[in-house]
Design a protein around this nucleic acid. Structure first.
Length: 887
DNA sequence: GATCTCACG
DNA sequence: ACGTACGTGAGATCC
């Protein structure tokens, strides 16, 4: 077999790592995030590729031949931040201690060294892998040479991998042509000038036709568009210079020193061990065999409790005031095990189902779980509550949820499993469920594991969350997020739990009728479409539909998606008058959606006995702080179109003794914005209860309030939406069907009239860039690594997110506060009414008929007084015998 | 599993 | 010159 070699661009990877991992320090206050992230990426790639040789190239500080040729080279680049610079020597020291070969060469960049070493390796028949955070390296990809570009996202590393064919597939040019494309379009991050007015699109088109910059210059008169041709003629020298700068040198006088390029094995030097300890990379040590007792006793300290007696002994030894952490394990919604940890008792795992039956588990553990004097740390407590409730246990004393804490500290992760907690807060690497049990079809049952495996995977989890808790507490305190966590999110967990338990009643007969009505309608419209098309096809397949509409019927489609024609409603809407089939397809889509997602979907999840629907409300999903709803999603039940809205008639109170009260916040996001931006005009308008969109129209268009037409008002409404989303002229113009120029004028005029909003948006972005995160009024944070991206699209996205998150997130905070207050007030006053749904700015309460007045009042007051901003909060309460009627 | 489409705030 | 609104979840198709 051919030998494999991995060559890494040290500088670009360490940069990625630095921006992808939050600023961590060890207990001496040394920054370690870039080093930590660097090795995470490196280990992942080594594990995946299993190379035989490894080398890492670094830039030197000295100017390179490119700087000498062109003194603007990389001129726009700012130096490394100090927090990163101080990690560089430490990184190199650790690499040396780990025997990892490092290359650098005066006058050349790491890229050039990689280009050279990889050429030599390839010529010697080696399988070559080049790792870089920079797309520049794509120019050296070949059939045998793979370029890997890693990204760190939410604590996980993902890579994009490119052989030559992948470059062609993605960019439409060969790797070597990639240089020519870059020469034409330039590169702002390296300050490569390129040719004015030629961007990526044009550059690719030109190179696809002419192959090289030189050839394009020779045929410059044949180049279209005119502007590109003219500029290439004028800036030909600059284009050639750019090509020179962009070309990676592949003959640096450096030697490939295979003998000194070992890959990190499992044994490491004492020096390396000491360094890793010093930086507190505990998880890294797990990779290595360390001759050190303290590191090698993980599973020895836990016990499996296999008999009732052992379990009973352990659990009855827990006393009031003990701080205990626990993890429940379940499969198919059935408890199969529990791990528990507390300081004096140590860590245990007890399997449930065999020796310890579910019934005996219940008897023995009830006293523990229901004792509020035993302070518990759990992970996803809301889930535990419902699991325990099924066997007749009411959980009490649950004071700290590590999943929610982890979410508060970083809401952008995809998952918050125990192994995520271990690596993020303890720098400890433990096996994930997927690693231990597998996934999908081949997933093994937990209790098929050996005792040692159970200890290593299951028992450890209780101790993990127990160790993570103080770390999280400190971070929450340091972040000023104590109120957010202890007074909003933790209490909310119990509110959501009650909502899930209570469910919402469905009028089954009515839903069945609705379903068959849609069914009949769908049949009719389907045959009409077939006859208009002249053939039968799958209308639900965008691919087949595209063929019918744009090829067979010859409608002019604007190619939009990666895979073919777009048939989205906004496209079809424009083609409505071209053929009668279009309108029918739009109608088909509407009916089809209502039937499959809503009618069929809701019937599927309805509990047959209670005829209720029990949704799950997720508290750790969104990046902004909103909750989400799944299985089913009750936060997207149709309302905008009447036919869909009819569906709301099937959501009804449990019985005749109850009605629905529904309250929604009026303009909560704009009120939040008015407060945060401290904009006088907006604040006064809200104080006076003015029509805010009408006001915007009169301000922006400079016309009297009374003269605003309904069209002007609705346009202004779109502008207000745009402001909340982080406005862009293009999208606004699309939304309003006006030109981009007009949209720009709207926006400019808006900011002119609301200067503090402009200032607020700008300072929000500026602060976000400085801090690396944005935050809400109540201190909820969202990390914003996108803002330091060199990619225009990503950075712009980051800026819009930075503007939107504090608004959307503060609104989410406010309604969460209101939910806790409303929920607690219902309980405290011994009312029969219950909070059953939240839809972002709306609360639905199933209200007992005797309590209508009391609950209306309580609901309105608690919502309006959840917070006191510079503007009043307004909640409108409606009543109805179904959700439909509460409009 | 990725992609497209569409429902909501 | 770039490609665009922010935040979600679900069903259907197709590879």
């Amino acid at each position: 077999m051919n030998k494999k070699i991995m060559l890494v661009d040290g500088n670009s990877i360490v940069n990625r790592a630095f921006y992808g991992v939050p600023l961590l320090t060890n207990s001496n206050g040394q920054y370690t995030n870039a080093i930590y992230g660097f090795f995470n990426i490196l280990f992942k790639l080594i594990d995946e590729d299993k190379p035989d040789y490894l080398g890492i190239a670094f830039d030197l500080k000295a100017p390179t031949f490119r700087h000498i040729k062109y003194d603007g080279y990389k001129g726009t680049r700012k130096g490394m931040p100090d927090e990163l610079a101080e990690q560089m020597p430490a990184l190199k020291e650790l690499l040396s201690a780990l025997n990892i070969k490092q290359y650098s060469f005066e006058g050349f960049e790491a890229d050039d060294i990689l280009g050279t070493l990889s050429r030599i390796a390839e010529e010697n028949g080696m399988e070559t892998i080049v790792v870089s955070g920079d797309r520049d390296l794509l120019q050296i990809a070949s059939d045998k040479l793979k370029v890997r570009i890693p990204k760190t996202k939410g604590g996980k590393t993902e890579t994009e991998d490119y052989y030559a064919a992948d470059v062609i597939a993605k960019y439409g040019v060969t790797p070597s042509e990639f240089i020519d494309v870059k020469a034409l379009m330039g590169d702002t991050s390296d300050n490569i000038p390129g040719v004015p007015s030629i961007g990526e699109k044009t550059a690719v088109k030109i190179i696809q036709e002419f192959k090289t910059v030189e050839n394009a210059i020779e045929n410059v008169d044949n180049i279209k568009p005119q502007k590109a041709s003219k500029n290439l003629k004028e800036f030909r020298e600059q284009a050639l210079l750019s090509k020179f700068l962009a070309t990676i040198v592949r003959d640096v006088p450096v030697e490939l020193d295979l003998e000194h390029m070992p890959v990190i094995g499992t044994a490491i030097s004492d020096e390396a061990y000491q360094l890793i300890k010093k930086y507190e990379f505990k998880s890294m040590l797990n990779r290595f065999i360390v001759n050190n007792k303290e590191e090698n006793q993980t599973s020895k300290k836990y016990k499996i409790l296999n008999s009732k007696f052992e379990f009973n002994d352990y659990i009855s030894g827990i006393n009031n005031g003990n701080e205990v952490s626990y993890i429940l394990f379940c499969e198919n919604e059935e408890l199969v095990g529990v791990s528990i940890y507390y300081e004096n008792g140590g860590g245990v795992f007890a399997p449930i189902g065999n020796e310890i039956s579910l019934e005996s588990f219940k008897k023995m553990s009830k006293g523990f779980f229901e004792n509020g004097e035993i302070i518990k740390t759990g992970h996803d407590i809301k889930n535990d509550i419902s699991l325990l409730r099924k066997i007749g246990i009411e959980l009490k004393g649950a004071a700290f949820d590590t999943a929610i804490a982890a979410y508060i500290l970083n809401p952008t992760r995809d998952t918050y499993y125990c192994d995520d907690i271990a690596s993020e807060f303890l720098k400890l690497s433990v096996k994930s469920e997927e690693e231990v049990l597998g996934k999908g079809k081949s997933k093994r049952p937990l209790l098929s594991l050996t005792n040692d495996e159970l200890l290593e995977f299951a028992a450890v989890q209780a101790e993990i969350i127990s160790m993570a808790k103080p770390v999280m507490e400190k971070q929450i305190k340091d972040n000023n997020q104590e109120k957010l966590f202890y007074e909003i999110e933790m209490p909310l967990l119990f509110v959501l739990s009650d909502m899930e338990k209570y469910g919402i009643k469905v009028d089954k007969e009515k839903l069945l009728k609705y379903q068959s009505m849609l069914e009949a309608e769908l049949e009719t419209i389907t045959s009409e479409i077939y006859s208009l098309a002249g053939e039968e096809f799958n209308i639900n397949s965008p691919k087949q539909l595209g063929v019918i509409l744009f090829e067979k019927l010859g409608l002019k489609g604007s190619k939009k998606t990666k895979t073919g024609y777009s048939t989205a409603a906004e496209v079809l809407e424009k083609l409505k008058f071209e053929s009668p089939i279009v309108e029918k397809i739009l109608y088909f889509r509407q009916i089809s959606k209502l039937k499959s997602t809503y009618a069929d979907g809701l019937l599927n999840v309805m509990n047959k006995e209670t005829e209720k629907i029990y949704s799950t409300f997720n508290q750790t999903i969104t990046a902004t702080g909103r909750i989400s709803s799944t299985e089913p999603n009750l936060q997207n039940i149709p309302v905008r179109l009447e036919l869909g809205r009819e569906l709301r008639k099937v959501f009804i109170p449990t019985n005749d003794e109850f009605v629905f009260l529904d309250a929604d916040y009026s303009q909560i996001e704009l009120r939040v914005l008015a407060d945060m931006a401290d904009d006088e005009t907006l604040i006064n308008a809200f104080k006076e209860g003015q029509d805010i969109h009408r006001l915007t129209a009169s301000q922006v268009l400079n016309i009297p309030f009374e003269d605003v037409t309904s069209l002007q008002r609705s346009n202004a409404k779109a502008v207000n939406f745009g402001i909340v989303y982080g406005i862009g002229a293009f999208s606004l113009s699309q939304d309003l069907g006006i030109t981009r120029k007009e949209a720009e004028e709207y926006i400019e005029s808006y900011f002119h009239k609301y200067p503090n909003i402009k200032i607020y948006m700008d300072t929000t972005i500026k602060n976000a860039k400085e801090n690396g995160y944005v935050s809400t009024i109540f201190g909820r944070r969202r990390p914003m690594p996108e803002l330091s991206s060199s990619n225009f699209v990503q950075r712009s996205f980051g800026e819009r997110v930075a503007m939107n998150m504090p608004i959307q997130g503060s609104a989410a905070d406010i309604i969460k506060i209101a939910m806790v207050k409303v929920h607690d007030a219902l309980i405290k006053n011994n009312l029969k009414s219950r909070l059953i749904l939240q839809v972002h700015d709306e609360l639905l309460i199933e209200t007992h008929k005797d309590e209508i007045d009391a609950v209306s009042k309580l609901l309105k007051e608690n919502m309006e007084n959840a917070v006191h901003l510079k503007v009043p909060m307004v909640a409108d309460v409606k009543i109805g015998r179904s959700w439909y009627e509460t409009k």
